[in-house]
Design a binder for these strands. Structure first.
Length: 416
DNA sequence: TCTGGGGTCCTAGGACCC
DNA sequence: TCTGGGGTCCTAGGACCC
């Protein structure tokens, strides 16, 4: 009987692979996908990685290089990627006992004790690639954190890698802490200060020192790296904890009317999303930010309000967001981004009765009718709380691909 | 000129209470 | 007149991830 192993599925160059699904002619052609506002590179094909373009680099800095490389550039189209992601992991879910989707392109799963791991993961890979057409890699090891590292080896080899105990032990002295999932710039700096360079160094540190220096995060990391499953594979809760909507402006603004308009827009999006989930929230947070580059980078912040009763009412949420915006706003500061976030999400059916009579007007029917219209239009036909007719802060997308799978009019013709 | 958006989790510090 | 210390909750911010 051997120890339980964990696998990590990772879609290769996911956003690029999604675009290629509908443009097979782009196979082996350098392709990048950009973030909203065409700000920076968020996905790169192998050809792009090979010419040394890093992840997250601002688009304007590499425009020329891309042109010379005859690269094809897409504006990010997240609704399409989400839809394809759903299809990929629907297939995976059929193949495994327990699956935990970790991000839009990754999921953990357990290898069954009685399975031959190599054959098991090879079958998953083949099935996904045949049925959906998105290439994937799979790494397997003793814990999530180890599996994550195994998947980086998988990507460099033939897409599958099983890292057993013996191999892991032979590797730990070569793996640098900053290569580990969960170790970012902050933790890496702290490790360096304490003379911890490799994973082996971290493993040798005694528990009380780990606690004192790194707190619970360090303790968690140490166990995971030692092959102890601290975080088992769990199918995610049905409901996420928070929902967020935010966007950078194409240019900064000091105008509170524009900021309030943006906040109202994000709030409407979230309220509609809550209603489509059949959920409500008990907390709303508004945040405003300046550019990270320049003199005002420390200005801005966030404020939140907790509701007495859960709500998904656009009117109530917008009123709250507006109040928070007024409190946050400082004249003369060039703001670049507005975000709205809700938390304490619960299903409406779980909604506890309040002790106090609900004196708010019943807006349910009106909001429902509005949702139906807006959803079928694929955009905001009817809005609440918008006083401006400005698109100053909205996204520009130069090269977005059509909404192949999410809007009927743009549906791709697929021949069997 | 132009540097993303959407999540989860942890923690520091203040308010408040006994 | 003396004016403590510990616990808990809340808020804001930050680290980290893809």
């Amino acid at each position: 009987m051997h120890k339980q192993q964990i696998g990590l599925i990772d879609c290769n160059n996911f956003f690029v692979s999604c675009e290629r699904l509908f443009r097979p002619d782009l196979e082996r052609v350098p392709v990048v996908v950009l973030s909203s506002n065409d700000g920076c590179v968020v996905a790169r094909s192998k050809e792009i990685k090979d010419i040394g373009i890093p992840m997250g680099v601002p688009y304007f800095q590499i425009k020329d290089i891309l042109r010379k490389a005859k690269a094809v550039v897409f504006s990010g189209h997240i609704a399409l990627y989400r839809d394809i992601s759903r299809r990929v992991f629907e297939v995976v879910r059929q193949e495994v006992d327990t699956m935990e989707q970790y991000s839009i392109d990754e999921a953990f799963f357990f290898i069954p004790a009685d399975a031959d791991p190599q054959a098991y993961i090879a079958h998953i890979k083949d099935t996904v690639e045949q049925q959906i057409g998105i290439p994937i890699s799979i790494g397997v090891a003793a814990s999530k954190t180890q599996a994550k590292y195994a998947s980086t080896i998988a990507k460099k080899t033939r897409g599958l890698h099983i890292c057993d105990e013996a191999q892991w032990e032979s590797l730990v002295s070569e793996i640098k802490v900053e290569q580990i999932w969960g170790v970012g710039a902050g933790l890496a700096r702290k490790c360096k200060q304490h003379g911890i360079v490799s994973v082996a160094d971290l493993l040798q540190l005694d528990t009380s020192r780990v606690d004192a220096v790194f707190g619970v995060v360090g303790r968690w990391l140490q166990s995971e790296l030692a092959g102890v499953i601290t975080s088992p594979v769990e199918s995610k809760r049905l409901l996420q904890k928070s929902l967020m909507n935010s966007r950078s402006f194409s240019k900064t603004t000091q105008d509170i009317a524009i900021l309030a308009d943006a906040a109202a827009y994000h709030t409407r999006q979230i309220a509609a999303e809550l209603r489509s989930m059949g959920a409500a929230c008990t907390l709303l947070r508004v945040s405003i930010r300046t550019s990270r580059h320049g003199d005002f980078f420390l200005r801005g912040g966030s404020k939140e309000v907790v509701f007495q009763a859960p709500t998904a009412d656009t009117f109530e949420l917008i009123n709250t967001a507006e109040t928070l915006m007024q409190e946050l706003y400082e004249a003369g500061v060039p703001y670049q981004k507005v975000g709205v976030q809700v938390g304490g999400i619960i299903l409406q059916s779980d909604k506890p009765a309040t002790l106090f009579a609900d004196t708010r007007p019943d807006t349910k029917a009106l909001l429902q009718a509005m949702d139906v219209l807006n959803i079928s239009a694929g955009r905001e036909l009817l809005t609440i709380g918008s006083r401006l007719r400005t698109d100053a802060w909205k996204a520009k997308s130069e090269t977005r691909s059509p909404a192949y799978t999410t809007r009927w009019k743009e549906l791709a013709i697929v021949s069997a």
